[in-house]
Amino acid sequence: MKISKMLGYSLTAFVLWSSESLRPEAEAVAETEVEATKPSAAELLQASDRARGAAASTQGLIWNADIETIEAGSKNQVTYEIRARGNDAIAKVLAPARQKGEVMLFNDRTLWFVKPGLKKPVSISPRPRLMGQAANGDIASTQYVRDYEGKILGEDVINGTASWRLELQARAKNVTYDKIRYWIGKGTRLGVKAEFLTVSGEVFKIAEFKYLNNITIGGKKFPFVSEMVIRDASDNSNVTTIHYKEPKETENPPSLFNVNNLLR
């Protein structure tokens, strides 16, 4: 046999051998990469919470919320200024005039209501409705990762967005809902849709989200919720829309979230 042919056969063998030996590693790398892209429920919730007010800011956030309700044909509107820092948040009514100055204070899971002239704050629950379809706990920052145990149950396409479907179970009694069915966009990791369930598993209201806002935190830009539309599951005509406006990072001192300071 000629040497050139031998070299050719050797080269071919070498190529064949090397591709064989390398293939398992390549596959292993690819599978790891695939495994590395499926998030945990907690990760998804943390990401979606960030866009709904629970951003990890050392200073705090501020935004306005216009809540519009349509119920039995009649309309109402209230404007809040909301400041948040960590697990605390405070929502103050800016308009209408007769409600101006009313405040809801969130200290972790404890909620207070204060009105100008009231001698003491009133301890309230996040569950009762604030107005229309919005509960007290809906208006401030969302802390689903803190308040709910999540499980990824599957995948759906919601409003054209491929989403993870999660089931959230309340960790404590004093959170806003017992159970939530929550869809988070696979690519965006933003909450797309939520169905709020009773203890028996019936859907009683449905929320959908839009994220046309952006917020800069620590020099980084993040999407922020711009709209939350909540509908009564039994009567579509009853709807509450929360418009989130002008979110930005700001200095919120801890004293702002002290209930005793509200009365002075």
Partner: peptide, 18 residues
């Protein structure tokens, strides 16, 4: 003997009184 009452206003939202 001071207490606070909190209730849902007939029009909208919460009302409170001493």
């Amino acid at each position: 003997a001071n207490v606070q009452l909190l209730g849902e206003r007939w029009e909208v939202a919460l009302g409170a009184a001493d």
